[in-house]
């Protein structure tokens, strides 16, 4: 939270010397990077866990590897969606 306020302060300080459009673009760019960075943390951990557990399951029961792989990709798809929404938010903040 402290980091957030510091970034906000910094953007304010920069904004004081910029025109409003530039100030808005600056703030949006900073927030966009932050948003994507935050959005990537959870899915990163989640996808790592999914793959690890899937490998464990496949090593334990190689005969059910096909089913585990399909389910694994489903789980990855759902987890990854969060990171991708973060990416879309990044694009929206930065360029929209």
């Amino acid at each position: 939270m402290e980091a957030l306020t510091r970034i906000a302060h910094a953007s304010i300080r920069v904004a004081a010397e910029l025109t409003p459009a530039e100030a808005k673009a600056n703030a949006a760019a900073q927030m966009a990077g932050l948003a994507y960075g935050l959005a990537a943390i959870g899915p990163g951990i989640g996808i790592g866990m999914i793959f690890g557990k899937a490998i464990e399951a496949m090593a334990r029961q190689p005969e059910s590897a096909g089913m585990v792989r399909t389910t694994m990709f489903l789980g990855v798809a759902f987890t990854e969606a969060l990171a991708l929404i973060g990416f879309v938010a990044f694009i929206l903040l930065k360029f929209a």
Partner: peptide, 15 residues
Amino acid sequence: HVTTLQGGLVQVRIA
């Protein structure tokens, strides 16, 4: 121009 940022900081700029 009114800029509102997280943390409640408000900047008012008249141009």
